[in-house]
Computed example of a mutant assay.
Amino acid sequence: MDISVVIPLYDEVESLPELTSWIKGVMDNNRFSYEVILVDDGSKDGSWDMICRLKEQNPHLKGIKFRRNYGKSAALNVGFEAAQGDVVITMDADLQDSPDEIPELYRRITQEKYDLVSGWKAKRYDPISKTLPTKLFNSATRRMSGIHNLHDFNCGLKAYRRDVVKNIEVYGEMHRYIPVIAKWAGFTKIGEQTVEHRARKYGKTKFGLSRFVNGFLDLLSIFFVGKFGKRPMHFFGTLGVLSFFAGTVMALWIIVEKLYHISRNEHYRDATDNPLFYIALVAIILGSQLFLTGFVAELVSRSAPERNNYQVEEVI
């Protein structure tokens, strides 16, 4: 199979007929063998019933329905697991991504041998309250990830080699940083393609202000997981040893200073009257806790096989 199109959706019943018809036209015109995997992330507006009706008209459609809303990352992860195409393309269901971009994305993966090609909506139809924070996040992500050639990490329109989606894990809210996850997994040939951004035709956006706070926290998380996920002791252990060492040095300094004054028969204040004593005590305790945290994190990192278990209600 040439292409798998993975589309996560939540309450997009109005756009589904037009979107699937548009995709079918593009695929037929280019003679692609394909499948469209529609992942219903707990919709309440009848989206699943619409998917069932559309599947009767187009056997290339497949549907996966969650019992409740898990989020876009969960929908993408399950869609990636089900995808069978040589090239996997993701897009949003709100008609703001154009299926006309699919042939060029496919060509760049198959002929230019990219691992991942990410869309860039150079001209956007979003308010400044959305575009300005997005630019800040993208700038921070470029600096922290080292992927300097991408302008928009969160664009829903992306293309992947099959090996990429089968070897990465998308969870929490990490869909914003899939290029970073792919890079940490060893897929380093990442390209960008300018794509059309269309104004929303139906419904309303599902993302509020909380996405910006979550985006920042996810960026820190992906940076930590990517760098220390397989070796958390290197992070916590290093901080712990440094803190414990600094506290020990301060404690020894207090002891030596006290002994020096005693040897000279000089009166000197008690150690507990010295503020440095409490700083040393805190540093030693903190160092011990950080070291133990690293040890526990090592155990946890080896014992979390069920992080991506989602309750799928129905598959057609």
Rank of each mutant, 00 (worst) to 15 (best):
P179W: 01
P179C: 04
V180T: 09
V180C: 12
A185Q: 13
F187W: 00
F187C: 02
G191E: 00
E192C: 09
Q193A: 13
V195L: 09
V195C: 04
V195N: 00
H197R: 03
H197C: 08
A199L: 11
K201A: 09
G203C: 01
S210G: 04
N214G: 15
F223N: 09
G226I: 01
K227N: 13
K230P: 02
M233W: 12
F235A: 10
F235C: 05
F236N: 01
T238V: 06
G240V: 00
G240S: 02
V241Q: 03
M250T: 05
A251Q: 12
I254H: 05
K258C: 05
K258G: 11
Y260K: 08
H261W: 09
H261G: 05
I262N: 06
I262W: 13
S263I: 06
L276D: 04
F277R: 00
Y278Q: 04
I279W: 07
L281A: 10
A283L: 15
I285S: 08
I285P: 04
I285D: 07
I285T: 09
G287M: 02
S288G: 14
L290R: 01
F291C: 05
F291W: 11
L292V: 14
E298K: 14
L299H: 08
R302T: 05
R302K: 15
R302Q: 14
